[in-house]
Design a protein around this nucleic acid. Structure first.
Lengths: 212, 212
DNA sequence: CGTACTTTTGAATCGCATCAAATCTGGTGG
DNA sequence: CCACCAGATTTGATGCGATTCAAAAGTACG
């Protein structure tokens, strides 16, 4: 990994990554801002946990290699903390690799743990973050268990939106990936739903329509 | 819901549901042991959060009803805490319904929150539980994003097992459901993997074999 | 010993992935 | 301002793999 510089342009980072808001000023000032290149390794299985990683932009993957020699992706992270569970463990249980040019914040793990103990607000914020993450991931798992594209779209609107309306904050291609579909399948399902009168689309807004 | 009895046969419960170990004795003694019947509602959208629910046996679903009048499943819970996120919110954002005869432990939410503040060990255990849950769910999402049955099985063995070996603690039918597959598709994929020499099965043990 | 459930195999169908290609869009530099 | 380019969006044709429906065999439990 590249040399770790002291934080310089944080104001712009904070604007894009809300997880940073959680972190007490004192801890923020100890963080390293780091750039990782494509295929650059951040940590490997067995490495001791020195830093808590926060992805600001780009993508990091947590992977293992199976007996057949193939990569198994345990997690793709395009923003927020990676491997929250590493806080409690001494060593990493997988490899962490950047798959595109990636910007990260590294927080010293020991101080991170200590601050979590001492700072009541941080502690609550962290717990809230984890609980919210669990909620979202559970819904995501249920969604991916649905077998049809139309059902996944409907599930997304209901679980991520409000009153049957969701504002998409990403491209449809990226949405397709989140839904576990190819972009072609997503486009076709959206078209079908509109034709069937189940869905209205207005720019980035998707509206689930009642049976009527 | 049925009348709430004081805890009686806890020792046997503790043996089957490890989440209970986390909970301090004082808080355990305030819990209600409850039986819910099929289709019985535990809470509804908008209800204020009075209890933290722990499923001991059976199944509870968190659901919303979409504009077309269909149920959208946000979570199926067959053991452990439901809706951890409800700890931080005043009211429920979905309905909670038992879909089979279900045994639950109900902890008074206010006391639960207070204990979480006061008890260092409990706090750490809770955080560890959430972090671990996040890790498992992230892997589960990646697994469900894979399009083939063989890939999902391989991913499961690698991420849930150790060194390419996993001990299944459930029926294959239940496993199929966890993998987002029909049981037929799972059986056939397992057969194919054995025929191709990629997998060995010994009772409940599944061994991923190297290319060789 | 019977019953309920899991495990297993078979055949037909359907929906999604895949490959291909055209169009549209936003952003860049000339 | 326009030409250009990379990426997103959209439509088409084909094949494969999972679902679905059906049914038989195996297994656990009372």
């Amino acid at each position: 990994m590249e040399n770790k510089r002291p934080p310089l342009d944080w104001p712009s980072l904070i604007a894009t990554e809300q997880s940073v808001h959680l972190i007490p000023q004192a801890l923020q000032e100890l963080a390293h801002l780091v750039q990782a290149d494509t295929r650059e390794s951040l940590f490997r299985i067995g490495d001791s946990v020195r830093y808590i990683y926060l992805v600001v932009s780009g993508e990091v993957r947590l992977i293992r290699v199976n007996p057949q020699g193939n990569e198994v992706i345990l997690q793709r992270c395009r923003g927020g903390f990676i491997a929250e569970a590493s806080l409690d463990s001494r060593a990493y249980h997988c490899d962490g690799v950047a798959v595109e040019p990636t910007t990260l914040l590294l927080f010293p793990a020991a101080v991170f743990r200590a601050t979590l103990e001492d700072d009541l607000v941080f502690r609550k914020g962290w717990r809230s973050l984890l609980a919210n993450e669990v909620r979202k991931l559970r819904a995501q798992c249920e969604r991916l268990s649905l077998h049809s594209a139309v059902d996944r779209i409907g599930h997304y609107i209901e679980s991520e939106g409000t009153n049957g309306v969701v504002n998409l904050s990403q491209s449809r291609k990226a949405w397709a990936s989140e839904l576990g579909l190819t972009h072609e399948a997503l486009y076709r399902a959206l078209r079908r739903m509109q034709d069937d009168g189940l869905l209205a689309i207005d720019g980035h807004q998707f509206i689930s329509k009642p049976k009527s």
